[in-house]
Design a protein around this nucleic acid. Structure first.
Length: 275
DNA sequence: CATCAACCTGATCA
DNA sequence: ATGATCAGGTTGA
């Protein structure tokens, strides 16, 4: 199936916003809605293989986002004009709220590589076997056998995951219901969850709840703001700067800055430069 | 409201 | 090889 969409798969799927995509050559393999999905660049679009409908995939890839309008809106200075040109085709994804929340709960104080290993471990332990890959587990699946969380090497995230799985499994918390709320209310509710602070709440709001003005500030974005804009200080201060400067699509600006900062630090350490 | 130590693991440094 | 150091958000003092 060929999808008519302007997108860079490496930038979109490899930038760290989602953690279940694996690259094999130019083919990207991920798991969406409990189904394996293969994506490959094609002239003028993307080829998709898997048991997902066209509309479901287009929804996941946020094909409804008008990249020209969004990039134009965040290109408020020379740096952002450069990044919007350099990283054209980088899209935010519209991830499942439960999976996104659970994933970013684990992402606390961990780098991208470790997040991936914790998430894959969680999926192997609790998720449906899809033959090779595993689905992201439902909260009930984790809660039913939550003793096995102890072997997942989650550190102090273990108790938080147990607690989160319990409250979602028993219906106390319904991640999908947070989708309809305003940005402020959404973040407020998320931060009431043990283990969810400013950064995780902003990530979940941005990556799964359509709040494109969210501007998550992690260590990398903090460095970028300091280097490029001379901004530092509290989370609130940095995040408010991002939202104020870049506007309603600040989340897109954040991803562009994240990508840029990642490449510059990567080049700094990799003298050999191959690849 | 700002600061800061403690938390857990894996990677990297001496 | 072994131990020290560091990276990375949230919490509560």
């Amino acid at each position: 199936m060929i999808l008519d969409i302007d997108i860079s798969l490496p930038l979109t799927l490899g930038c760290g916003q989602a953690h279940r995509w694996q690259r094999q050559g130019d083919v990207w393999e991920g798991v969406v809605d409990g189904k394996v999905l293969l994506l490959r660049p094609r002239e003028g679009g993307v080829e998709a293989i898997g048991h997902l409908s066209r509309s479901r995939i287009m929804d996941y890839l946020r094909a409804d986002d008008d990249l020209d309008a969004i990039y134009g809106s965040v290109a408020v200075d020379a740096l952002m004009r450069d990044l919007t040109a350099r990283y054209r085709g980088l899209r935010l994804l519209r991830q499942d709220p439960w999976e996104c929340l659970a994933t970013y709960l684990l992402a606390v104080n961990a780098n991208v590589k470790r997040i991936g290993s914790m998430v894959e471990g969680l999926c192997r332990t609790f998720g449906d076997d899809l033959g090779g890959r595993h689905a992201f587990p439902r909260a009930e699946q984790i809660w039913e056998r939550h003793q096995e969380l102890d072997a997942c090497r989650l550190g102090y995230r273990c108790q938080r995951m147990r607690s989160l799985a319990a409250s979602v499994a028993n219906g106390e918390l319904v991640p999908d219901e947070l989708r309809g709320l305003s940005y402020d209310e959404c973040v407020h509710r998320l931060k009431n969850i043990p283990g969810v602070g400013d950064k995780v709440a902003d990530c979940v709001a941005l990556f799964s709840m359509d709040h494109l003005q969210a501007f998550p500030v992690d260590a990398r974005i903090g460095r970028s703001l300091r280097e490029n804009y001379g901004v530092s200080g509290s989370y609130h201060r940095c995040s408010a700067f991002g939202r104020g400067r870049f506007g309603p699509y600040a989340g897109y600006a954040q991803e562009l800055l994240y990508q840029s900062e990642g490449e510059s630090s990567w080049l700094g350490q990799t003298q050999a430069g191959g690849l």
